[in-house]
């Protein structure tokens, strides 16, 4: 299964973290640090799998891809196929790209909730739910529409004025 899905930037700042089993907050931060130190020490053109036995226990691996300023990291155990997960990361990034039109780090920074929605449509409880980017898009669009129904969620509003107007 997938133990965790992480997005962090090349400075080691976490952007999205999702642990599919409970991990205490302190441990989460420690894991992020270790994972970052491992990834940042690897130059490009190396293989995308790093054995992570000392971080997550035996038979676990980091599968990662490096896009611009971001690392997309999935932590998996032996029940997942490494190359399959690499493809899944591709699907994830493609979906982000479609949703945000040329996704960049800032999109992910400012759309914490939305990115979680997308990720949840792809992976649930450590299992892959959907591998087709189009299907994910469909569900995500529906959910966002639903979020905007009626009163607006402050999270989706840029600028408080708009929010205030809609309330009053």
């Amino acid at each position: 299964m997938i133990l965790a899905a992480l997005i962090m930037n090349t400075q080691g700042k976490p952007r999205i973290t999702k642990f599919y089993d409970h991990v205490s907050v302190e441990r989460q931060q420690e894991i992020l640090r270790v994972v970052y130190s491992v990834l940042s020490s690897r130059s490009g053109n190396l293989c995308s799998f790093v054995e992570a036995d000392d971080i997550f226990g035996p038979d676990t691996k980091l599968v990662y891809k490096h896009f611009a300023t971001l690392y997309f990291v999935f932590v998996i155990d032996s029940a997942e196929s490494e190359l399959g997960i690499l493809d899944l990361i591709q699907v994830f990034v493609e979906t982000l790209d479609r949703c945000f039109k040329n996704v960049c780090e800032l999109d992910i920074v400012y759309n914490f909730g939305k990115v979680h929605t997308i990720l949840d449509e792809i992976v649930m409880g450590g299992q892959v739910v959907e591998t087709s980017s189009a299907e994910v898009m469909k569900a995500v669009q529906d959910i966002w529409k639903l979020e905007r129904v009626g009163e607006l969620n402050p999270a989706n509003i840029r600028g408080i004025g708009h929010y205030k107007n809609s309330r009053s």
């Binding site: 999702k18 409970h22 639903l146 979020e147 129904v149």
Partner: peptide
Amino acid sequence: RFSHKKVGYLAASQSFHE
């Protein structure tokens, strides 16, 4: 409200445990 509920569920799934 769905949008509120969603925030709650996200918070729960990020922080709750057994």
